[in-house]
Amino acid sequence: MRRVNVAMLAEGIAFAMLGAILLVLSVTGTYMYYVTPRTLPYLYFASAMLLVLGVFALLRMFEQAHIKPYSHLMVLLVPIVLLGWSAVDTGILDRLLTPPSITSDSEDLMVAGGGAYTMKAALYQDTQIHGYDPVHRRIVIPEEETYLWLVEIYENPETFLGFTITTMGQVMKDEAYFTEGTFSPVRQLMTCCTADLYPIGFKCEYGDVDSLIADQWVRVTGTLTIKTLSQTSELRILADTVEEVSPAREPYVYAY
């Protein structure tokens, strides 16, 4: 029987494991916990390359070698271990193991929302976004379209003044950014990866901001208005209701 070169076998398995992990993240969409949808084709490419290297190593596993290094496998094992740990910590593993169900408040928002709206903002012209109800002058912002609605409303505020806006996010009321009686329900915007997360959301006026806890998930409903300040003016939602909700299904929103 041919003897197996254990070092080469270990290398082949490590390459194949990492390639398979990237493939699973890509196919299931869970890669979006770390990087944006724009990265998807590159991830497929990386997964294919790693699998090819895995096959190449496995084909050589009967090739005898005297020097059998292992320390170089750290290059593969560190990401494998961290991705495994992170999959448990972030809930990716649960999501992979349990079938999706429509229970999130964001899905409720989607169901409750009105029809489609065609964007006019320069960069996203003709993009369809949802939750628009012109008859009742109401917008129920679906969670994954938070960024696009923000862009559209900030670029064309006059179109939406007086509309009732419903949006969700995590409470941000840091004193460095918010004056008394104001806060934002923010979503984390990812432009490239988790290293560049940035909070985005409408500034809201609310009478009982003190009762809100930082980072708690809330759904805000209120009227869009322009607040004139001493030197400038800014868009705000005059919040009528702020209710606690379960966390959004997707952890982040994406610029493109």
Partner: peptide, 14 residues
């Protein structure tokens, strides 16, 4: 770890 993995996943394909 999340930041580390995000950067790694962004960098490794390139």
């Amino acid at each position: 770890i999340s930041v580390f993995l995000g950067t790694w996943l962004q960098a490794i394909p390139f």
